[in-house]
Write a protein that binds this DNA or RNA. Structure first.
Lengths: 303, 303
DNA sequence: CGCGACTACAACCCTGCGTTGTGCACCTAG
DNA sequence: CTAGGTGCACAACGCAGGGTTGTAGTCGCG
C-alpha cells in the first residue's frame, strides 16, 4: 500500500473534490485520480462516488477513512521516533521482561499520553555512554561504580531474587530458601555475558554465598531454559520477583523467594542533569528513590 | 515513507542479515541494501551497524522498530477494513456525536478487542438497503415502518430530549419544561434534511405539540449553531440527552430536560438475521432491548 | 440545449527501483 | 601471516510506474 496514495485519499476526503486536493498536494488532478484509482484497485473496492460536484465517500470509503488517518499518524510517530529534538523519551532497560520494563509500564499506565521508546543496550557502560552523548535520555541499570559527574542517578528499585525450580528439585516444596543453603546446588543462567554489570552482580552473589552459577552453553532464550529446569532435579535458576515468566501448566515450576538475607538486584535510573525532556521529569517524579532495606544483600558497589 | 522499505527493515531485523531477508522477500541482497539505505536517508539516521556477521540495530533502529511494526499492523488493519469476509463489524450510526455512537463506545469499552468500523449513511432507508446488501452489518436508526422480513430489529434506547437555550432565553432558568409550553417558541434545527427519518420525527413532534421547528438556512455545524443560540433570547434547539456538546464557558448555555410527557427518540438496532459475525452477537447481547416507558412520547410509527 | 464543473482516459517522458556484476572489509582457520 | 569465506556497498543498465499535458465524457443547471 502506497502511503502517498493514502495521503491523497485523505486529502480528497477533506477537500471534497479531486481538483482541490490536487492543488493542496501541488500535483495535477490527473495524478490524484491515478493515485486514488490505484488505491481502489489494490483494495478492490470503490472508495468514492464521483459526481459532477465532486467526490463523496462510499460506505467502504467511510470504513477505510479512520484507518487511513491512523496509518498516517503511525507514519508520523515512526518518523518522529528518530527525529532529533522533540522526540519521545528514549529509555534503556536491561530486558523487556524484567523489572525496569515493568516500572516503565506502570509509569505509562499513570501517564498514558507520555510517549516512550524503549531500547536495550549491551551493558551499563554502553548505556552511560549513550546517555552522555544524548542518544538516549535515561537508563535503568545497576551501577557498579559512581556515574560520571555530568550524570545524575537514583536507586529506584531493589528487586528481591527468587529461585525457579522444577517439581523434582530438592527444594521444590520449600516456602522460602536461605542463600547459604544453595551452596551445593547448581544454578544455571545461560544468558550471562561476561563483562556486563549483571554478570558482575551474579559473580559477587556467587562469591558471597559460595554458590555455583553456571553460564555455560548457548542462550536459546527463556522458554528452553524453563524446559530444562522443569525436567531437572538438580538445576535451578534465579529470576527477579517482577520478571515475567509464563510456562505450560504441566511443567509445574515453582518460584521460591530467597530470604535471610534477601539478595536484591539494585536497579538505578540515571540521566543527564541538563536534559529538559518533560517526560523525564514526570518519570523521575513517578519513581521514588529507595535505600537498601533491612535484611537484604546487595554487592558492595551498590551501596 | 515507503512501506516496502519499512517491511524490508523489519525483515532484516528478524533475519539478522540482509542476505537472508532478501531471500525471504525474494529480491536480491542489493535491493534490500538499497531499500534500507533509502529509509536511512529519508530518516537521516543510521538504522543498522553493518558487520561481517550481519546487521545489528543501532539505538535509533531499536527505537524505530516498534513503530515500524505498528505501521505495518496499521496497514494490515486498513486493508482488512475493506476486505470482504473476516472484516471488522461495520455499523451505521446517525451521527458520531449522538447517542448510538455513545452506545458503541460503551460497547467498545466493554469489549476492547472487538473491531468496529463506524459509518454514517444518508437515512434509515439507505441503511436498510445497506444492511440487506451486506455492505454494513448493522445500523442504529429510528424505524418509521416495519423493517423488511429478512431483517431483525430491536428497540435499544429511548433517548429523552433536552432543550438548549442561551442565558437570555425566557426558559433559561427553568429546571424542566413541558413540551406544550414550547408552542409559541422558535426551535431552530438547521441540520434537518427532508426525507430522513429524523426529520420525520421532528415533524411529528412539532405537529403533536404545536411547535414551530425551523430548518431554514444552511447547516454550518454544531458550533455556529450554539454560537447563535447563546446570543439569542428567542431561539432554542433540541438535543438528545446523550448528545456530546461542548461550548466555551462564556456562552453559558443550558440543557433543560423536557418532561410531562418526555419526548424520546426511539433508537433501534437492526441487522440481517443470517449474519454470523461474532461481534454482532456480542453487540446484541450488550444492548438490552427496551419498551416505551411511562410518561414518554414517541411518534406513532415507533410503537 | 449549451455551458460550467468535474473526473477519466491516452500518450509521452523521466525518475526511480530492481537486477547483474564487482569491489571491499572483516573474520577465521591453518 | 595469509588465503578463503562471508556479507554489505557501489556501479551500470533496463524497465515499470507515476507524473504531466491534452482531450473526452458525464452530470447538473439555467
Amino acid at each position: 500500500m502506497d502511503l502517498d496514495a493514502v495521503r491523497t485519499f485523505v486529502a480528497v476526503v477533506d477537500a471534497g473534490r479531486f481538483q482541490e486536493a490536487a492543488a493542496h498536494l501541488t500535483i495535477t488532478q490527473q495524478a490524484v485520480s491515478k493515485r486514488v484509482a490505484g488505491l481502489e484497485k489494490e483494495l478492490a473496492v470503490r472508495l468514492f462516488d464521483r459526481t459532477a460536484r465532486g467526490a463523496r465517500l462510499t460506505i467502504d470509503g467511510q470504513a477505510f477513512l479512520p484507518h487511513a488517518r491512523e496509518l498516517l499518524r503511525a507514519e508520523e510517530r515512526a518518523a518522529a521516533s528518530v527525529r532529533p529534538g522533540s522526540r519521545a523519551l528514549r529509555v534503556d532497560v536491561i530486558g523487556r521482561r524484567l523489572a525496569p520494563a515493568e516500572l516503565l509500564r506502570a509509569f505509562h499506565r499513570a501517564h498514558p499520553d507520555a510517549e516512550l521508546d524503549v531500547v536495550t543496550l549491551f551493558d551499563a557502560d554502553a548505556a552511560i555512554a549513550a546517555v552522555r552523548s544524548g542518544a538516549i535520555d535515561a537508563s535503568f541499570r545497576a551501577l557498579t561504580r559512581q556515574p560520571p559527574a555530568d550524570l545524575e542517578a537514583t536507586r529506584v528499585y531493589d528487586e528481591p531474587l527468587q529461585l525457579v525450580t522444577g517439581p523434582a528439585h530438592e527444594l521444590a516444596a520449600a516456602r522460602t530458601v536461605r542463600p547459604g543453603l544453595l551452596a551445593g546446588h547448581r544454578i544455571w543462567m545461560p544468558g550471562l555475558v561476561a563483562g556486563t554489570e549483571w554478570a558482575a552482580y551474579y559473580d559477587d552473589l556467587a562469591a558471597e554465598f559460595g554458590l555455583t552459577i553456571e553460564a555455560t552453553g548457548p542462550d536459546f532464550g527463556t522458554e528452553p531454559l524453563l524446559d530444562t529446569i522443569a525436567d531437572s532435579a538438580t538445576l535451578a535458576t534465579f529470576v527477579g520477583e517482577l520478571t515475567r515468566l509464563v510456562w505450560p501448566a504441566h511443567q509445574d515450576l515453582r518460584r521460591i523467594p530467597v530470604r535471610d538475607p534477601t539478595p536484591v538486584y539494585p536497579h538505578s535510573l540515571f540521566w543527564r542533569g541538563d536534559n529538559p525532556h518533560p517526560t523525564l521529569t514526570a518519570l523521575r517524579a513517578h519513581l521514588r528513590s529507595q535505600r537498601a532495606g533491612e535484611g537484604t544483600w546487595a554487592p558492595r558497589w551498590a551501596s
